[in-house]
């Protein structure tokens, strides 16, 4: 009975597993295959970092925060520009000391932003239709995108974490030329893991975290036992702002801080669709599946498709992520780890 119920999920899993193994069967070198796989996993970690912000806010308030990508850009811009300006302003040494202080200040700015959003945008919309809240976050997105560039600038800014950009090769004795691993990506993965552990501890072990979980489970019940909803919302938006800052720092160090970060951050949408809107592990696993899926598709699926049907060509990784998310949506609407929605009749 259970197998029959889970049939579509199992079938989809089988198709994806077959797709994952197909390049090896069709003769792609194992070393290259592993490189693409690792590259996909590392990209997935970065998507997960942003997806975490989406999940946090959705869990605690039921709001789908479309502005999470814009928050990543805003936080990264604040960090990069403050690290650049602080040495001239207060005479602090450039480099790590300035970056550390800039991080603290940027975190403060994100907390302030959370408070302003709660006061001006969310509070007047309490008990409104979820679509109204979604539209409000869309408005916040455009505001932050534009306002961020107005005050911080629209050039490409650097965040220097002091990580070597040179490639690192592993398993050189097994594969010709070795397998490429990026130190930046590895450190990003470690930071993401650290952040997840930190969030888990915060949710499980602190009174505020437990209050957040209570609000997530049932707003009205939480309010009835004296948990202040507004304060909780400020906290959760502040935590999401902090997550955005960490994501912005890692991405900014890798790609440079520029407007495109906000667009890239929207890659977290298929991640949360796939992983489930309410699940932190879902954000992580979803990110990894999307990261691997899109890189594999771009490298191994796109070129043969173009050749076979004489297509015009073009990058496929951008839309392939959404195809994957759609497939999951069809067989498991609540996502891999999302809570199943049951209505009592």
């Amino acid at each position: 009975m259970a197998a029959k119920k889970n049939g579509p999920v199992i079938a989809l899993g089988a198709v994806l597993a077959a797709g994952l193994a197909a390049p090896l069967v069709t003769g792609s070198p194992l070393g290259f295959y592993l490189e693409v796989l690792i590259g996909g996993l590392m990209a997935g970690v970065l998507y997960s970092l942003v997806a975490l912000g989406f999940v946090l806010i959705f869990k605690a308030s039921g709001v789908f925060n479309f502005a999470q990508g814009a928050m990543v850009l805003f936080a990264a811009l604040a960090l990069a520009r403050l690290a650049e300006w602080l040495p001239a302003w207060i005479g602090i040494p450039a480099g790590f000391p300035a970056l550390t202080l800039a991080f603290v200040l940027a975190a403060g700015i994100m907390v302030g932003l959370a408070w302003v959003i709660e006061r001006i945008v969310l509070r007047p919309l309490v008990a409104q239709d979820p679509v109204a809240l979604l539209m409000a976050t869309l408005g916040v997105t455009f505001f932050l995108d534009g306002f961020g560039q107005t005050i911080w600038g629209s050039d490409i800014y650097k965040i220097d974490l002091g990580i070597s950009k040179d490639p690192t090769m592993i398993l050189e004795s097994m594969f010709q030329g070795g397998i490429l691993v990026s130190k930046e990506d590895l450190i990003a993965a470690v930071i993401a893991a650290g952040l997840v552990i930190l969030l888990a501890l915060f949710f499980q072990k602190t009174a505020t975290g437990r209050a957040l979980r209570a609000v997530a489970d049932d707003h009205q019940a939480a309010q009835s036992i004296g948990i202040p909803l507004n304060r909780i919302w400020v906290i959760v938006w502040a935590v999401a702002g902090f997550v955005a800052l960490v994501a912005g720092m890692v991405w900014g160090a890798k790609l440079g801080v520029q407007f495109s970060l906000a667009q890239l951050a929207l890659k977290a949408l298929p991640v949360v669709i796939l992983g489930g809107f309410t699940s932190i592990p879902g954000a992580i696993i979803g990110g990894l599946i999307i990261g691997v899926g899109e890189k594999m598709a771009e490298v191994f699926l796109g070129p043969p498709l173009v050749k076979m049907w004489d297509l015009a060509g073009g990058g496929i990784e951008n839309w392939f992520a959404y195809v994957l998310a759609l497939l999951f949506l069809m067989v498991r609407p609540e996502g891999l780890f999302g809570e199943k929605h049951i209505d009592r009749v």
Binding site: G39, A43, S260, L264, K295, V299, G315, E317
Partner: peptide
């Protein structure tokens, strides 16, 4: 090909490698 805005090029450069 690199899709707009061009910040995701990992797959491209792995193919170049």
């Amino acid at each position: 090909p690199v899709t707009h805005p061009g910040v995701e090029q990992k797959a491209t450069w792995l193919q170049i490698r």
